[in-house]
Every structure is written in C-alpha cells, then in structure tokens.
Design a protein around this nucleic acid. Structure first.
Lengths: 343, 343
DNA sequence: ATGAAAGCGCTAACAA
DNA sequence: TTGTTAGCGCTTTCAT
C-alpha cells in the first residue's frame, strides 16, 4: 500500500491559482506577500491540514532539525534518564531526536549510525557499545566536521566534546565506603575493558584499596564483556567470586545493567545477597525496595543528557568550525542504604 | 556548522565520466550495465565510502523503510521490551524504527506523530498516552490509507489492527488469586479511564469479586490519571486506601509504571508493603528481588511488539488496501511470588 | 506582490 | 550499454 494522499504546496497553489513560490512565502509569513493572499493561503492550508514535508525540506536545506542518539539499551535506567534529559533540551530548541539501540553490538551500532547520517541528522549523541574498538568511521565523520558529542561511554582518541560522570571518584568513594564499613575482600564486577567507564571505575576501586593498604587481587575482579546482556556470564562471575579460593565479603558493581543483573544473580546463587556487602552503579528508582535496600552510586544521567545536547546544538548552530573540545565531568552521588551495612 | 562534505552519485559520475543514471544503475547492480563499468563504479564508491542519501531516496520513492513508534515512556519495562520485539522484526525485514515518547502528554504525542508522518515513515505503531481522547487525526490518517497498528493502549473507535494482552483475564486471575489467598478488601490502583487497559483490567477485577460474592466497593478503586508520572498522585492513592474508612488488606495495581511507583509509595507510607497482599501488572525483571518478592501479571511485551510489527509491515507491503482488521490478544502470565501469600 | 526556474540526491521512463 | 530528462516537495534567486 502506497500512501500519498497528502496535500502539498503545489496542491495549494493550484487550488488558489498561485505559484508555488507565493504559497511557500505566504506560509512562511514573508513580508512581500500581500495580506489578503497570505490570509487566503493560510486559511486554505489550515483547512486542508497542510503539513510541510520534512523530507523535502531536509533535502533542500541540507539539515533536518533532528539529532541522532546511539545508546546500547534503552532498557537501562541510566540511558532512559539520559534520553529524557536529551529530549528536554532538544525539543525546546526545536530539534527532534531519533533514538537507536546498539544492543552492545558493534555492527548494529554501525548500521544505526550510518542510517542516522544518511537521514541527514544534524548531529549525533554517542555512547558506545561494549564491542566497539574501531572508531575510524567516527573519526572520519568528525574530521569532515560532522557535529557529535560523546557521553558516558566515550573514546579518548575521538576528540570531540565529552560529557561523563566522575566515574573514578564514584568508584573510589563506593569502595572506600565499603572499606570504612569493615569490608576487606571486595569483589568488583565490571564490563569490558574497551569502555572508559570500566577502566575509570576499576582505577577508582584500585586506588581506594591502595589508600587503605588492602592488596589488590585481580582474582576479585571479573569482567563481563557483554556488559550484562547475557545472564549466565554474570552468574558465573558471581559464583566464582564466592566459591573460589579467595572468597569475597563485599561486592561492588560497575554499570547500571550489570548492577541489576548482579542483584538477580546474587539472589539466585544460594541467596547470597543478604550475606555480603553490596554497592553498585545504578540509577534505578527501585533500589530502596530491595531487602536489604541497595546502596548505590547514582549518576546525574538526566543532566549528562542535557549538557551533551546543549553542546551538540551549540556545535550544530555555530557559524565557524569548532576545534576546541572539552570534557565535562558531572558529579555522581553516593546513596548509602542497608546493603553496605556491616554484616 | 553545516556539514555537507558527503559524496553523492553526482560526484562519482563526474569523477568517472559517467552519467548519474549509469552510476545509479551500477550501484544497484542492474543487468544493463557492463561488468567493467559496474566494477569501476562499485570500487570507487567503496573507496570513497559512498552512502546513498536516504532523504533523497525517501522523497523520490515516497517511502522511507522506516517505522515510527509512539509510546508513553521508554523507561517502562513493558514498552522497552515491546520495542525490542518491534526492532527484532523490523530490522530483519529491512526497516528502521524511530522511537518517540509522549510522556503521557497528548500534545507531545501529536507533535511526535506529525513529525513522523512528515518524515515519511511508512507506518506507525501506536500506544496512546493517558491524555489522548480525540483521535480524529488518526482517523483521518487511517482513512487515507496510512498503515498503522495499535498495541497495548488502543482505541476501540479506531478500526485498525490491534495487538493487546488479555487484560481482562490477567486482571481477573490476579484478583481471583488474591481472593483464593484469603484477601477480601482488595484495593485497585489504576490509570485513567481513557485507556482501554484501565477499563479492561478494572472489569476483570470487578468480575472476579462478583464471582466470589465480594461486594464491589468503588472506594477501593483509585485512578491515577497521569499513569504514575506524578509520584504524589500515587502516594495519595495509596494513603487513602489505607487510612480511609474502608481499609484494604490487599492491593492490585494495573500498569507497569504504576506498579513500580506504587511499590515505592507502599514502602514510604509507613512501610505498608509488608503488611498487605500485593499483585501488579509489571514486566520488571527485578520483581523477585523485593522482600517480599512481588507477584505479578507479566505481559508478553516482546511478542506483542513483534506481532504488531508483522501486521504493520504486511499492511505496508500489501498491494491492495486492507480493510479487514483483526484484534489479536496474547496471553499474559501470572507469576506468583511471596507478596500475595496469606499474611 | 507574484511568478519562473533551478537545485537538493536520487531513480526511471524514454532516447540514442 | 549509456545518457538525457523529468520529477519527488520545498525554498530561493532572479526576473517581471
């Protein structure tokens, strides 16, 4: 079924015995057009429910007033909140957003980005998938002057604006918090080392241990390289932390999805959750409904989305190329609940 | 900053001393083009990283190979799972999806839909906002033959394909389950009566009471007309159910967001959650991490998304107009956990 | 104040 | 086998 029963400027012109250019001008309220013509056109357009064809406009203007978003999963509290932040700015500035998910797949991410670009989005908000390592395509785009801002999961080598949470500090404080509560064998479940957030949080964890003279034991760090997409991967990590030679007394998880999946796994693995100190990065609103309620590191997801969007729109609308890029770091927030109480 | 450093067919044609049509044909592998020309074009295109401009294609072909999705919130387990179902089908059939959120606002919904339509999406997957009552715009679109499928939150008067869960049955069983566990004063928190899901679930609740000779008391039914978007609205509902003359011994909540927000409110209102039987519609994966673990009605969200998409693509690709529409009802699933145990 | 024509990138009918 | 041309819907420059 082809759908093409939409009214165009041409139709209006024909009906009113005007040229398309006059109609176009009238519609846009240009001063040259006589009041009566304007009125006639506007009324007719209104009556016929005329809507400009944005596709045609994009083609003509070479811009779309749309922003492309690439995230790994929308079913992730951090990202859905960030997207709300993005939308809050974008809509106010007259931009639409197009949301795509990579599902942690590099290929899907690539397909999505190319699709967005060939749809003439005016800019991109990027948060990379676990699998992504080759960013040459993004480099190229960037070098050609295509506006993009990275947020949360960013690539050092891609020199654009970046907006991130203070991953290092968040992890440092979380770990130090567990230590201050008396935990000594602190396991850390995190994602792939491809991601900056993994590396930064791991470093925060390490440095907190160091500061408190607790030897770093790499046996206690488990990388779930699919970022929690595969439950078994996480359960295995949890099991090995509890049942190998070096048993843990507390667990610190990096990443929103990882944290929620870990909590499931902890429950499933001999109901370990109640028997271990716990803190994790997550933005879920349900953290205090668990028993014990979950201590978390909460990221300013909404604000990160907002800030990234402001920077992006600034780039899009800037007359001259921008060559100087900043990395903005927003504070995350430790919320202490029962799961990190001394046992 | 305008970004326009992309290679087009014209560029290729110029570089290779060919006409744009030859290049176009070579790119699409048409049989008329000689092997060598084809090879030359393909190689050059590859080397220059040529990507077709989908905007131009859409304008030309009057279709975009894109599907628009309108939901209230992506931060809702039901919808994010449904979207995953939608994507799983769409991508396999060569369609992209454009996700938009209404945030339960009728105006935003309207803006989004019009935007999608003027971007030439080939069809729409619709789940209406709480505020929506006037569907004349959708009626018009539908009458013009624009492909659309409604899912979950559907409008009776809009005669398109519909894919929904068995809301009535789900609610009936949930309520009956609470009754079978000995609860008699069962409160029901639901959303606005605008929504079919509200009405169907309420009816299931009523009929279950009726069947078991429990008088229906409308004092026990609270409508949160913003669908849980406003926490205070929900907390108020919860409070009134506990502290008014007719106190409840159990609570049944309709709707994903409403359920999770209610759980928060229950916890906050004098920690009532442990003192009341509970069951709710929700697709969260965290339900068994609460204490007590939450009994739920789980909807086949992924499958609903899939099925709606199959129907939509069928419509889009059908040669002849489709005039006969079906409503598909998929079974939801009662998962009994501890929250509905006798106290 | 209004119209004619060109062009955004692409495809296809028609010509050669 | 390849090229020319028109047209998708819109805006804008350049006439008039």
């Amino acid at each position: 079924m082809k759908f093409d029963d939409v009214i165009t400027i041409k139709d209006i012109a024909k009906a009113l015995n005007l040229s398309t250019s006059t109609v176009s001008r009238a519609l846009r309220g240009r001063y040259e057009i006589s009041a009566e013509t304007k009125k006639m056109v506007l009324e007719y357009a209104e009556r016929m429910n005329y809507r400009p064809n944005l596709i045609a406009l994009s083609l003509k203007e070479q811009r779309s007033k749309a922003i492309g978003i690439v995230v790994s999963e929308i079913a992730n509290n951090f990202f859905s909140q960030a997207i709300n932040g993005i939308e809050s700015i974008a809509y106010n500035r007259g931009y639409h957003v197009i949301i795509t998910q990579s599902h942690e797949s590099r290929d899907r991410e690539m397909v999505n980005v190319q699709h967005l670009v060939s749809r003439n989005v005016d800019g991109l908000l990027l948060s990379f998938s676990c699998e992504t390592t080759d960013i040459s395509y993004f480099q190229q785009l960037h070098e050609k002057g295509f506006p993009m801002v990275q947020f949360d999961r960013v690539m050092e080598e891609l020199d654009t604006h970046k907006v991130i949470a203070d991953n290092y500090q968040g992890a440092f404080h979380a770990t130090e918090h567990l230590i201050s509560r008396g935990f000594r064998k602190i396991g850390h479940i995190t994602s792939t080392n491809n991601l900056n957030i993994t590396r930064e949080r791991l470093q925060g964890y390490k440095d907190a241990l160091l500061k408190h003279h607790i030897p770093y034991d790499e046996e206690l760090v488990k990388h779930c390289n699919r970022g929690g997409m595969i439950y078994e991967e996480v359960e295995e990590a949890v099991e090995s932390l509890f049942f190998n030679k070096s048993k843990i007394d507390a667990l610190f998880t990096a990443g929103d999805r990882l944290t929620t999946v870990c909590l499931s796994a902890l429950k499933n693995v001999q109901n370990k959750y109640k028997q271990v100190g716990f803190i994790g990065f997550t933005n879920t609103n349900l953290a205090d409904l668990f028993t014990p309620s979950v201590s978390v590191v909460r990221q300013p997801a909404f604000e990160i989305g907002q800030r990234a969007t402001e920077l992006l729109i600034e780039m899009i609308e800037s007359k001259k190329p921008i060559t100087d890029f900043e990395q903005e770091v927003l504070s995350s927030h430790l919320i202490v609940r029962d799961s990190s109480k001394p046992l």
